[in-house]
Amino acid sequence: MTDSSREFQGTSLLSEKTSEIIIDSPDQLLPLAKQLKDKGYDHVISLSAVDYPKSNELHLVIHISSYTKRDLQPKVFELRVKLKKSEPKVPSLINIWPSVEFQEREAYEMFGIVFEGHPDLRNILLDQEEFSGVHPLLKDFKIPEEDITLKLKEDVKSGTNK
């Protein structure tokens, strides 16, 4: 499953209400974010990432919306930033949207993305000290899956065990 051959790359099925921007370099993020903030998108719903091991990319996916502009309120705007997996660095958005504070910390621990300029970049959900180093939401981190058949011991097989 994880080495998916049919890896998804960005076709949109979101409703027509939604707009979307993909940017290739993290340098463009801050000016764009500032523009969007000025336009009225004042809070971040979700900031997370998706790992694409095939193209060796991490996409930072940000969903933003507005609490104050009537016409923007029903919209969810998606902002995608392509990052190199070898060096996932991106400027922090905390000065533009303070609401990203905890979500950036989460993306940091789950994907290893470094947010430059974040004042308090440490783990939030996972243990700081016992952290092994493989960021759990990357596709390299594998979870074993279970079979649907039962491995029977002899005593269980007879159906007599209580």
């Binding site: 998916s4 890896e7 998804f8 949109s12 099925l13 998706v50 969903h63």
Partner: peptide, 29 residues
């Protein structure tokens, strides 16, 4: 394959799901 979001106002506020499918039986993200 594709992506979609769903959101609902639950008791404590807005819950937001963002799904990505790669056409498999299990979600991609």
């Amino acid at each position: 394959a594709g992506k979609a979001y769903g959101r609902v106002e639950e008791g404590r506020g807005e819950i937001f799901f963002y799904l990505e499918s790669s056409g498999e039986a299990k979600p991609y993200r």
